[in-house]
Design a protein around this nucleic acid. Structure first.
Length: 634
RNA sequence: GCUACUAUAGCUCAGCUGGUAGAGCAUCUCAUUCGUAAUGAGAGGGUCGUAGGUUCGAAUCCUAUUAGUAGCUCCA
């Protein structure tokens, strides 16, 4: 007999060859039903595997992340089986579980439609109901190749051929369908209790745009119907917060056919934008930044010097002036370099922190445009910091602190990513190594957790990116800190050191908002359009009950207006309910209802967009509360 | 850029298999002066994204093109 040690420390004996599923069932009927995978001596295993020696065993259910992952992975196989039943000529590429569900990439003459998804779901339900076993087998490479080649599954053959020589080639069979897969999987299709197919999209084979574009079907699956419903409801709610929808409803910005990717900012959007800029200036002033502005169009020669002509040309717009080539700036840095060079610098001045709200133009692919999140013209809240090599760590830490402060003001959650040297890059290996380690150390000392994106850096240096979430959980890169070892060299920047000799400064590029446009998009979604008072396009609206109270309403309005409050009066001949409804929908933070009682006593009846009727108060009290709320950016 | 889908009044949308455009909201006018999410009545507004084609006849079918949407690729 074998001894199995369980999670709680208890032990139990089983005959060799007992499946893990049987072990789970023996422990309790409930566990037998809930268990999806097992961890045997620290290794993930299928429940259909057998035990051959003493082992430490832990069972995984759908309540854990690993269990949910298995459900989704198995659901992808179930979907593939269903598709094979309904569209037998379909060829299968890859079908993994992902963050919020699963997908399968397919190659088929048939173009899948939303109606097909309904039919596939039905077929999947049938397969789930049959509760078919998933059985793992391992094959020698030649046999596996022959197996898939016989079925015409060219993508699977290519995948196997690309596996390392010593790789274990495993297959999972569920009834009449067998797939190449590393596993692990749920023991049977009946474990897929709640799933939903969501969308059809294109995707390149192996993510390479030179390859054939396949059809990808996205779906999701959960441990229970309740969780699935909750998730789908959340998505519906999130759609209401989409900044493209709110941007139109709240008249923040507009995108027109006449300028794809070139947003128009409307009066309301300009207020949010200007408030963000005011705040930005205040923060940067405190952190020792100065501000400058460089031209939007600069000569070809400059872009050749900076390296953009060679490395970034595809994304740039060009023009000619007096028969000479010019480029519209896609980045602010070359201009910043020229400013640095306008005078000699001493080590005593460093670090120099030069900020610029720079409007840049980039020719993004048409299919990549996405509301304010991805545009072709945007304002970077840029800054270049020039320093001595010995100052790198302190400066980067200080920058991380600034970022953290700004994001906290908006209550935004973020995560950081470190990107290392890409294939198309300038400079030598050693310099890259030093720079990358500099970033890494600064983050670690600050206690900032990060993930690493190998080869994802800019052509001129490694970078730390800060990603913020939109309403449906997609993340967008906003802030970035990029170390640049190339430009100071290219532009021959120098400073005079303590020793009287010329030295090369190190520089970083950094943006906190990233682009003001993208940041406004993120904020709009995070606040669901209900901007805090300090950012709200209209902060207060006065609503007189009838014309009779207009004079007092004007008085109230004027007092607040003189204090710099963004205020308006709704003096239309409408009922109070109508005016309130409209102010609510426009997400005006405060409404002041003015009627006979208020006019007589010199008070205001305050209604907040979130808290409803706050009752009558003295105007002075309301002003005190309001100005406090604005000042503290609540 | 690629794959698929979508495109009708300012907005949200209806318009079956081709017979020549409709609703609600918004706008304007009139009446109502009414205390916490829609007062009533009336009026105006669209050559159905654009350009070709098929047809006696096209918002409806075909082709091209532009823009958008989902994703891929790429990126702040």
């Amino acid at each position: 007999m074998l001894t199995v040690t369980l999670q709680d420390g208890g032990t139990k004996e089983f005959a060799p060859g007992t499946t893990l599923l049987t072990v789970a069932k023996t422990l309790s009927q409930k566990l037998g039903k809930a268990a999806l995978l097992a961890v045997v001596n620290g290794e993930n295993r299928d429940l259909t595997d057998t035990l051959e020696e003493d082992a430490q065993v832990e069972f995984i259910t759908g309540e854990s992340a690993a269990g949910l992952h298995a459900i989704r992975h198995t659901a992808a196989h179930v979907m593939a089986q269903a598709i094979k039943h309904l569209f037998p000529t379909t060829k299968f590429a890859i079908g993994p579980a992902i963050d919020k569900g699963f997908y399968y990439d397919l190659d088929s003459e048939h173009i899948f439609t939303p109606e097909d998804l309904v039919a596939i779901e039905k077929e999947m339900a049938k397969i789930v109901k049959e509760n078919i076993k998933l059985e793992r087998s391992e094959l020698p490479r030649a046999e596996a190749l022959a197996f898939f080649a016989a079925q015409g599954e060219a993508y699977k053959v290519e995948l196997i051929n690309d596996l390392p020589a010593d790789a274990v080639i495993s297959l999972y069979q569920e009834g009449d369908f067998t797939d190449l897969c590393r596993g692990p999987h749920c023991p049977s299709t009946g474990r897929i209790k709640a799933f939903k197919l969501q969308s059809i999209a294109g995707a390149y084979w192996r993510g390479n745009e030179k390859n054939k574009m396949l059809q990808r079907i996205y779906g999701t699956a959960f441990n229970s119907k309740e969780e699935l419903t909750a998730y789908l409801t959340m998505l519906e709610e999130a759609a209401k917060r989409d900044h493209r929808k709110l941007g139109k409803e709240l008249e923040l910005f507009a995108l027109m056919d006449e300028g794809p990717g070139f947003p128009f900012f409307l009066p309301n959007g300009m207020i949010v934008r200007n408030e963000l800029i005011n705040y930005w200036r205040a923060v940067h002033r405190r952190y020792g930044y100065e501000e400058l502005m460089t031209p939007m169009i600069l000569s070809r020669q400059l872009w050749e010097t900076s390296g953009h002509w060679d490395h970034y040309k595809e994304n740039m717009y060009f023009t000619q002036i007096d028969e000479l080539d010019y480029a519209i700036k896609p980045m602010n840095c070359p201009g910043g370099m020229l400013v640095y060079k306008t005078k000699p610098h001493s080590y005593r001045e460093l670090p120099i922190r030069a900020g610029e709200l720079g409007i840049v133009h980039r020719h993004e692919l048409s299919g990549a445009l996405h509301g304010l999140f991805r545009v072709r013209c945007f304002t970077q809240d840029d800054a270049h910091i020039f320093m001595m090599p010995s100052q790198i760590k302190d400066v980067i830490q200080e920058t991380i602190r600034l970022f953290d402060e700004v994001y906290a003001t908006f209550g935004l959650k973020y995560h950081a990513e470190l990107s290392t040297r890409p294939a198309d890059s300038m400079g030598d290996e050693a310099t890259w190594e030093v720079a990358t380690n500099g970033l890494r150390e600064a983050m670690e000392d600050f206690g900032l957790k990060y993930i690493v994106n190998e080869g994802d850096g800019a052509f001129y240096g490694p970078k730390i990116d800060f990603h913020l979430q939109d309403s449906i959980g997609r993340t967008w890169q906003c802030g970035t800190i990029q170390l640049d070892m190339q430009l100071p060299e290219k532009f021959d920047l120098t400073y005079t050191g303590e020793d009287g000799q010329k030295h090369r400064p190190v520089m970083i590029h950094r943006v906190v908002y990233g682009s003001i446009e993208r940041f406004i998009g993120i904020l709009t979604e995070n606040y669901a359009g209900a901007f805090p008072v300090w950012l709200a396009p209209q902060q207060v609206r006065v609503l007189p009950i009838s014309e009779k109270f207009q004079p007092y309403a004007d008085q109230v309005k004027q007092q607040l207006f003189d204090l710099g409050i963004r205020i308006a009066t709704d003096d239309r001949n409408e009922k109070i309910g109508y005016k309130i409804r409209e102010a609510q929908m426009q997400k005006v933070p405060y409404m002041l209802i003015i009627g006979e009682q208020e006019a007589a006593s010199g008070t205001v009846a305050v209604r907040s967009r979130s808290g409803g009727d706050l009752g009558v108060m003295a105007l002075a009290d309301f002003i005190a509360q309001l100005t406090q709320e604005i000042a503290t950016k609540q």
